[in-house]
Computed example of a mutant assay.
Amino acid sequence: MRSFSLTDLSNKSGEVVEAAYTGPVDITRRGKRKFVLMTADQYDRLRKAEDPRKVYAAGETPPEIAALFEAEAGRLSRGEGYDD
């Protein structure tokens, strides 16, 4: 990922924007990353990306996920999978 300072953003805005067309660009202040510049399309794709982490309330867990948990709980209750 390319990196530019806030000063670069002011003085070389065209170069910074051109770099952002190819991928996200770090914008730094005093050597520390403070912002990321990206195209609207890149941002929209990032926002639409599904987060694989899910939380379910009791009774709402999909059957296929509940079956995985039940199988793993059974395996562990039989002592399988522990490193001795």
Rank of each mutant, 00 (worst) to 15 (best):
Y43H: 12
K12A: 06
K54A: 15
Y56D: 03
R78E: 10
L46K: 13
P52W: 01
Y82T: 09
D26L: 12
E64I: 04
A67M: 06
R33I: 11
E50A: 11
A49P: 04
E60T: 13
D41Y: 05
S10R: 13
P62I: 05
R45C: 07
N11D: 11
L76P: 02
V16K: 01
A71H: 05
L6V: 02
K34G: 04
V55S: 06
E60C: 05
G74H: 12
S3K: 06
P24Y: 04
L68H: 05
I27F: 00
D8N: 06
T7F: 04
S5P: 01
S10M: 08
A67T: 10
R30G: 13
P62V: 05
T61P: 00
L46N: 07
A49L: 10
D51F: 09
R33Q: 13
F69M: 08
L76E: 08
R75K: 15
R30D: 15
E72W: 04
K12T: 05
A20Y: 02
K34Y: 08
A57W: 13
E18C: 02
K34R: 15
A49R: 11
G79D: 09
S77C: 09
G74M: 08
K32S: 14
R30L: 09
R2C: 02
S3Q: 08
E72Q: 13
N11M: 10
E18P: 00
D83G: 08
D8Y: 01
T61D: 00
S77M: 15
T28W: 02
I27T: 01
L46Q: 12
S5R: 00
T7A: 09
A73L: 12
K54L: 11
L9W: 00
R2G: 04
P24Q: 08
A57K: 15
F69V: 13
F4G: 01
P63F: 06
D51Q: 07
P63G: 14
D26Q: 13
E60Q: 14
G79A: 07
E64N: 10
A40P: 03
P63V: 10
L37V: 02
I27G: 03
K34V: 13
S77K: 15
D8G: 00
D44L: 13
A67L: 07
R45T: 04
Y56I: 11
S10V: 08
T61F: 00
K32L: 12
G23Y: 09
E60D: 15
Y21H: 14
A40Y: 08
A57I: 09
V17L: 12
L37N: 01
